[in-house]
């Protein structure tokens, strides 16, 4: 397994956000976390990247226990992160935003990454010098996605990449994620709007109340999601 989450618990103050969550993601898979708002999807992602600390349980990435690895070193291990709400750096230009994803890797590698990303996302070329804060939501999501990919991570964490986007952008971003998958990138993504995300996923988990309720193949998750009205 590339990523293994075992019995993860997360608390904010007195509130339990995650309780006994176990999730496994194998190399090359695209795993989807489905659930309503507050189900614990984002907390799971944030625990993997290290923005929230685990109160209990273990997260291992490529066999390495992440417990003692601070957030700012996890990126270097090969984890890319596209946060909920996109959170591009508003005052940085589009190019600068993307390049922050490869911070400290040297100009040559940054150049190489940017050249490739521009072919996947032509937007990055058209809007290269524009401050990312001025872009539309869909454009910002592309910037956030490119930023997460810039260091060619082995695991890509996508937190609600379709949230609040128009169908035309959902299509573009879906096709971009498909291209990234083709490069062999492993993806762990969350989505409330499960329908477009299910097209991309190979496997999924249903979360509710900070716990994993079901796991299974895309077809099984689709059935559960339909029953519980996530679609």
């Amino acid at each position: 397994m590339l990523l293994e989450i075992e019995n993860l618990g997360v608390r904010y103050g007195g509130i339990t956000a995650l309780n006994g969550v176990s999730i496994a993601v194998a190399e090359g898979e695209t795993v989807l976390l489905v659930g309503a708002n507050g189900a614990g999807k984002s907390s799971t992602i944030n625990a993997v990247i290290g923005l929230v600390t685990a109160a209990s349980g273990r997260i291992t990435f490529d066999g390495k226990d992440l417990g003692s690895v601070p957030c700012e070193r996890r990126a270097r291990l090969g984890i890319g992160y596209s946060p909920e709400g996109r959170r591009v750096f508003p005052t940085l230009t589009v190019t600068d935003n993307v390049l922050t994803g490869a911070f400290g890797l040297g100009r040559a590698r940054q150049r190489e990454a940017l050249d490739w990303l521009v072919t996947v996302f032509p937007l990055l070329k058209d809007r290269a010098q524009q401050p990312a804060g001025q872009l539309s939501g869909g454009q910002q999501q592309i910037v956030a996605l490119a930023r997460a990919m810039c260091a060619f991570p082995r695991l890509l964490l996508l937190d609600e990449p379709f949230l609040g986007l128009a169908p035309v952008w959902i299509e573009q971003i879906s096709s971009a994620i498909t291209q990234l998958k083709a490069r062999g990138t492993t993806v762990l993504m969350t989505e409330q709007m499960a329908r477009p995300a299910l097209k991309l996923a190979t496997r999924g988990y249903v979360m509710r109340g900070g716990e994993v309720r079901r796991s299974g193949t895309v077809a099984e998750i689709r059935a559960v999601a339909l029953a519980e009205e996530y679609l």
Binding site: I49, G50, L51, C71, E72, R73, R74, A75, R76, Y81, P83, R87, F89, P90, T91, L92, D96, L99, T100, G101, F103, G104, R107, Q110, R147, A151
Partner: peptide, 24 residues
Amino acid sequence: TDLGRGLRALADDRDVAMAQGMRP
């Protein structure tokens, strides 16, 4: 420079900058 980009990113959004590998 890369350093300057990192500093400006930290100013914009510290959490996300850390998640990109910038070390405060």
